[in-house]
Design a protein around this nucleic acid. Sequence first.
RNA 1: GGGUUUAUAGCUCAGUUGGUUAGAGCGCUACAUUGACAUUGUAGAGGUCAGAAGUUCGAAUCUUCUUAGACCCACCA
Length: 881
Amino acid sequence: MKELPKAYEPAQYEDEIYKKWEDSGFFNPDVCVEKGVTAPDADPFSIVLPPPNVTGTLHMGHAVMLAIEDVMVRYNRMKGKKTLWLPGTDHAAIATQEKVERILWEKEKKTRHDIGRGPFLTSVEKFAQESHDTIVNQARKMGASLDWSREAYTLDEQRNFAVRTAFKRMYDDGLIYRGDRIVNWDPKMQSTVSNIEVDRKEEKALFYYFQYGPFVIGTARPETKFGDKYVVMHPEDERYAEYKHGDTFECEWINGQITATVLKDAAVDPEFGTGVMTITPWHDITDFEMAERHNLDKEQVIDFDGKLLPIAQEFAGMHIADARPKIVEKLKEKGLLVRVDEEYVNSLAINSRGKGIIEPQIMRQWWMDVDKEFAMQHSEIPGIKSGDTVTLQKLLQHTVRDGHIDILPERFEKPYFNWVDNLRDWCLSRQLWYGHRIPAWYKGEEVYVGTDAPEGDGWTQDPDTLDTWFSAGLWTFSTLGWPDAEAADFKGYHPTAVLETGYDILTFWVIRMIMMSTYHVGQIPFKTVYLHGMVRDEKGKKMSKNLGNIINPLDMIEKYGTDATRLSLMIGSAPGNDTKLSEEKIAGYRNFTNKLWNISRFMLMNIDAPKKDIGLPEGKTLADKWILWKMEEIVTKADNGLAAYDFSSVGEALRDFTWNDLADWYLEMAKVEESSQDVLNYLLNTMLKLWHPFMPFVTEAVWKEVYGENEMMMVEKFPEAKNCAVDTDITFVEGSLREMITAIRSLRADKGIAPGKKLSATVIAKDQGHLESSAAIIKQLARLESLTITAKAEKTDSMASAVVGSVEILVDFAGAIDVDAEKARLEKEISNVAPYVTAQEKKLSGPFAQNAPEAVVNKEQAKLAEAKEKLEKLQSQLSSL
RNA sequence: GGGUUUAUAGCUCAGUUGGUUAGAGCGCUACAUUGACAUUGUAGAGGUCAGAAGUUCGAAUCUUCUUAGACCCACCA
């Protein structure tokens, strides 16, 4: 007999247990095969960890991700699959560099240019390393069963080789090109950013109307207008029918007379402003595209620091923010300002990192072409053969549209297609220092792209780096040995089973992985995409430093334990939906963790020699038969639910089973019936195994306490449901027995009788067999001194009564009953049942009986019969008073 | 401007293809307590399922509209 400590103290077990797991090597599937816990020919189950950025510390978003993925992984490992969960971190080029630049400025008032590329990179790397160490250890605190022997970094040497290889291949296929196009330029960070990294902020702005020759044009940005010499309107706009495409006119503008040309283009919205606009191709995306169509001159007006160029003449060198009012003033003096709209709402483009205001510029950058046709070198994608001509966009559309990837929840297919169907070329190059250097070299006009520097003198490498999502896009296979397509890991674990991540990075990352994987390795990188929601505070607000409402997962782990923290993030949240988290919720699951511990503790006090491998025993007593059936039911539910990624409802069902059925009912009954030790032993083992994926620490702690320090719950087999037929014994416990006990307890509470006081009761029933065999249980749980089971009995004045199903219960409260109170209680009960009986009779005599399916009608009929019987009994009890 | 999503007990959420007298946890009320557990047990109160109309024998569930919130996408100068 083994006795556990009275309360579970997570802090005393967790770190030690994690170390034991890690030392065992079982996080590594190869070791599992080697040591015989996994069959060599078992199916693989692999997941890559969405690599956390090396910019900070673990937050609740990471915690949710780690909790959910660890459940998937532990479940599949216990199911005997060759399970790999591959860890790594992301260099997050722009985010990391921005953070270090900010620290540098705050501490030393220096910019990266002040200290130079080399020393700056050294300090970024130092920061990244420290941040990496922190976050990786925090992942361990979460209990994540990651195979650390395979840990990768998006910017390490192996990944860099994968990036260079991928870049060159796509360049050779014409999918990566260098071109002068309009980009989002952040003058603050001095880099381009992709469309997806631009946030929009609504802002009230002044909207000016200026006289431009015979037209009135509207603009919110007069400072861009210096070079404008084209005026454009919709071809079908009647108001301007007299002006023909190609007409020219002289007009007075900011810095004197200019010659302007009339253009007609359908991109102009006649409803907006005056329906006439001038074109500024260098600083506006719409204008740029129009200029391309009409082959117009393009001229830069604003430099890369946001200052006006010499074309602005007297305003040259001024920052645009300062110049704007002065330009308006000048136009006003010239009499060209027609009016100002002060209610205009402008959507300001802002860099999501660093918050610089985006200034469109035309620059020579590296791009990925999503419309370019190419021949698939190698394809294992259903519906696409090697050699087929496709585009990157088509690959993205095909994989999801033809059902080769399931997105959970399904509704996220809409934003997926919304993004994919409107895909634009992807600007790959960044003027950042931290990141993968673009593998391109220049000599004069010559360009060389390769995995390594070209032979010969005079070549200089492109100073720019790649968008961080380029290397992230290769993640599912660059972590498995690619570009070596023969690598054992790649062959054994790609494609992965499921990609679990937050819905907020569906477009950033998931799409890029599908694109890169289908192109480079001809495989769909995962079968399922599971998207979790954001964790918000208890009021539904985003957690942020400014609001001071951050719940730090590590604080919660320290206070309530990892298992409780994990449960609070998984139960009560649906995939794709945001969840509200409060400390009380976590505390609630801490209580449950302790409950589980104490259930184990109690069971162990009643098992002489616990057996680790114990099969399904035969239940002899009523309670045993019932709980074994109940247990098989929950095993089935858990197994199916986990396979279907239904973590919340599995967790909830397990908790209800454990706390209500097992602890509150079964164990109380077992105290009376003295259940067999084998049954207790089986229940204990099975309960721990079912909970292990959710609560790895407490289950492992109990397991080791019981079976020895060298035993590993983690690699035990997940329970498999046996068929357990229902018989009348089981239905009796499930229904009547528990209801009767509750009814007696309820009567007692209602009468204000102390729970300790023993009473006598009489039960009137037709079928007395089950009652006889459970008399001891009823007496103990309902605290009765004597129980009479009979077919007929008379009610006396000292008795209160209740009806459960077809059973009548009379409880003798010795001493006289307050007849009025008893009447009131019975009347209340009758007023509950009577209207139901009436409604039910009406329903069954109406069209319902003709139209509803027979099974449904029968069911309703049975319910009516039961209610009627109950009503009659209640009425006779009432009249006997 | 398009699209998604949420609305069920004071709070957080379940509620499978329409068929229960609508559930759970927390909180609340009353009572209990040296026998696994106060990080506990027992009993209870609490809901016109946001509103309106419709489909149906039958609607929390399906349809339409309305209201309120959250989010995503979009080049309107």
